Simulated scan of single mutants.
Amino acid sequence: MLTPKHNDSLQAVQAGLIVSHRRSLMRLMLVLATLALSGFALLNLATGRFLLGFVELLAASAIAYSLVRFRQAKKLQLWTFGLLIPLFLIISLSIVVPDATTTSFVWVMIMPVLSYLLLGRLKGFLLAAPFMVLCGFYYVFFRFEATHGLNSIIALVNPVLCGLLILVFMHVYEHSRARAYDMLIRLAATDPLTGLDNRGRFQQRLNQCIAEATRRKDSFALVLLDIDHFKRVNDTYGHDAGDEALRYLSERLLKRLRSTDIVARLGGEEFAVILKDVDASTARQLTEELRLALDESHLSYQSHDIHLTATFGVALWPQDAQLPNQLYQVADRRLYTGKHLGRNRTIDNDDVIIAADEPMTGSSAL
């Protein structure tokens, strides 16, 4: 189950990918628009349509200049509106000039394609629809030469229906694409069993936390935890019970954590938590609350009450380490210290003597 904080995080990732995708489309559109307008400008100047030719030549020069400046643009949406609106005005002008060719109307059909691809469903519709309606009215009442009979009706319906179908198609396509894109982002960033962040996404968020804490001069805690004797649960009750135990632990963690904290499943029975804006004392208190909440409850599975516990290793940034891998290694070492000392405990410092005959080993770092 995804919580609002996980949804916000995934939406931020999706927004970043969409911006990158639209930047690539915009660059391609600028190149093609420059070439097309330059070509039409030369043709119109050669055939005596000087007004339209000079406007297109001026627009092609402006778009070519925009292509150079676009690489450094930060407000992509404003740039998109600033480029599409003049382009659509030029297309409209190519229709209304007195000596325009009858086939110039076909360029109206590209309006919804560009608008939806570069602005999305809502803003794309709000930009493309008014231009298409105005151009359609002008074509019907001022350019269309009506004749008697069925052919006249067909000639009128063809472009109008084609434009409407393209608009509807782009609306449906963009809606389906956005849903599929959102689903792919979620699948790539979340654990399918628990709905929590997966290892790759958690690594990104850990790096982000370090960057934010560096700017704000705050501290945070990285907590690693393992379910104690998880293999015994699988062997005794079956793998379905093991999956239920993982989901149960996820729900307990989400229930006890604050809205600003981050939780992820790293793999197997290993989980990770980031406690933001805490000192050593607060980090230990919050971690102990998590441990006790799990220890004092039972998982009801079929007719069984399964008692689950977990061992926690805590590392504080920047006191224990400043780099993400080093911070993970500190928390991992303390987690395995807790396992050697009997499990179901929290270890948040290295002042513990390992009471074990065999050397301690930990899992690999992130």
Rank of each mutant, 00 (worst) to 15 (best):
L78C: 10
L257R: 06
E174W: 10
H175K: 15
F131T: 05
L275E: 06
F141K: 07
D8N: 14
T190L: 14
G163F: 05
Y65A: 14
S20G: 06
V106N: 13
M170D: 09
S38R: 00
T346R: 04
D8K: 13
F137N: 03
R284M: 13
V97I: 12
R23Q: 10
I185C: 07
N325V: 00
N151M: 15
F169A: 12
D218H: 08
S364F: 11
Q322P: 10
W107H: 04
F54H: 08
F54A: 10
N44Y: 11
L308P: 00
F142A: 14
T47C: 07
G338C: 04
R215Y: 11
G313I: 02
V31I: 15
H229D: 15
V106S: 13
R215F: 12
V19C: 14
H304M: 11
L167Y: 11
D348Q: 03
G342Q: 04
F144W: 04
V278I: 03
S66F: 10
I63W: 01
T101H: 14
G16L: 01
L150R: 15
L76V: 07
A356M: 05
T103L: 13
M111T: 10
T309S: 10
L335Q: 01
P359I: 00
S219L: 08
G48W: 06
K123M: 13
H304W: 11
P98R: 10
S24D: 02
Q14A: 13
N151Q: 15
F137P: 03
N44G: 04
D351T: 01
I262A: 06
L187P: 01
V96Y: 07
R27A: 10
A100K: 10
F105H: 08
L25E: 03
N234W: 06
T361P: 13
N151S: 14
R291Y: 03
L308V: 00
R205P: 03
F271S: 02
Q285D: 08
D279F: 12
L30Q: 09
Q204L: 13
I353W: 15
F169Y: 15
R333S: 12
V314M: 13
Y328G: 00
P159E: 07
N198F: 02
S219P: 07
G163V: 06
L156Q: 00
L222E: 04
L299K: 09
R291P: 05
H6T: 11
F312M: 03
L327E: 06
R256I: 06
L266T: 02
G200H: 12
R49Q: 13
T3A: 12
V352M: 09
I110Y: 05
D235E: 00
T287K: 03
L134R: 07
I154A: 14
L35S: 09
N151P: 01
L51S: 11
I274K: 03
R201S: 12
P192H: 08
A146G: 01
A280T: 11
A73G: 09
R252M: 15
I90S: 05
S94F: 05
L150G: 06
V160K: 02
A283R: 05
S20M: 10
D295H: 15
G163M: 13
N158I: 12
T80K: 04
R71H: 11
L335N: 03
A41D: 04
K123I: 07
E174Y: 12
D99I: 01
Q11S: 14
K339Q: 11
Q11D: 08
V68L: 11
L17Y: 12
F105D: 02
L52C: 08
Y65S: 09
A280H: 11
D305Q: 15
R291D: 02
Q203C: 12
Y336D: 07
V31G: 08
A33T: 10
